[in-house]
Amino acid sequence: MFNNRLVNIMLVILITLTLIGALTLVLYTQVFQESVAHGEPTIDEILRTSVETEEITTNLLSNHVIRTQFVIQLDSTRAKTEFEKRDFQVNNIIIQELSDMKESDFRGSEGIRSLEKRVKDRVNEIMLDGEVVGVYMNRRIVQ
């Protein structure tokens, strides 16, 4: 390669050390490094991406009145920003869903879970930047 044998040995050693370093870096980042847990978010993350709706009062199908409030958890802060801009659409969706329910639907937890799922699905239909992760009924008074 080169005329000087010492330069050849030095180049082989430098290339070998570079390859060992690159291999070590790849192994460290791919195999030995702990993977970030993508499980349940912390309560601080949930609060950072959650929005509380205004209190909504509307009639039910059974001529009762309900006063309710929801906390809606989103998947990102961008989704939260969009959600806050769409609050009038979200309130409309909630009123429509409540208007189709009877007072008896709120006696057990199954009716509440069903309402939360329907609201989540319908709000996700209008969201462009992210999605709703969870809907929680925060307050409910049926009269």
Rank of each mutant, 00 (worst) to 15 (best):
R113M: 14
S114Y: 12
T68H: 05
T58L: 07
E82L: 08
T77H: 03
G108L: 13
L47H: 10
I94E: 01
E84F: 01
Q96M: 12
Q73V: 09
T42Q: 09
E110T: 14
S109E: 14
L47P: 05
F70I: 06
T58W: 05
L115Q: 12
E110C: 09
A79S: 05
R113E: 14
E97S: 15
I112A: 12
E110I: 15
D75E: 03
E40M: 08
D87T: 13
I56N: 03
D75Y: 00
S76G: 08
F88D: 13
E45G: 00
R86I: 01
R113P: 11
L98H: 00
H38F: 11
D105R: 08
Q73P: 00
V71K: 06
T42L: 11
G108A: 14
T57P: 07
E110S: 15
G108P: 07
T58E: 07
N63D: 10
K117N: 15
T68G: 02
Q96G: 12
I56H: 06
E40Q: 09
N59Q: 10
F106T: 03
T77C: 04
P41I: 07
S76I: 01
I66L: 10
V65A: 07
R78W: 03
N92H: 15
K117H: 14
N63Q: 06
M101G: 03
N92A: 14
N92Q: 15
I56D: 02
P41F: 00
T49Q: 00
I72D: 04
E97Q: 14
Q96H: 13
H38T: 12
M101W: 05
I94P: 05
F83Q: 00
R67D: 07
D75Q: 02
E84H: 02
I43E: 08
Q89P: 00
F83T: 06
S62Q: 09
Q69K: 15
E55P: 07
V71H: 02
L61E: 10
E84R: 01
N63E: 08
I56A: 06
E40V: 13
R113C: 10
S76D: 00
Q89G: 05
T77W: 00
E103L: 04
D105C: 10
E55N: 12
G108I: 13
N63Y: 07
S109P: 11
T68K: 05
D44N: 13
N91R: 12
R86N: 06
F70Y: 15
S99M: 09
D105M: 03
I46R: 04
E55R: 15
K85Q: 13
L115A: 11
T77Q: 09
R78I: 09
G108E: 14
Q73N: 12
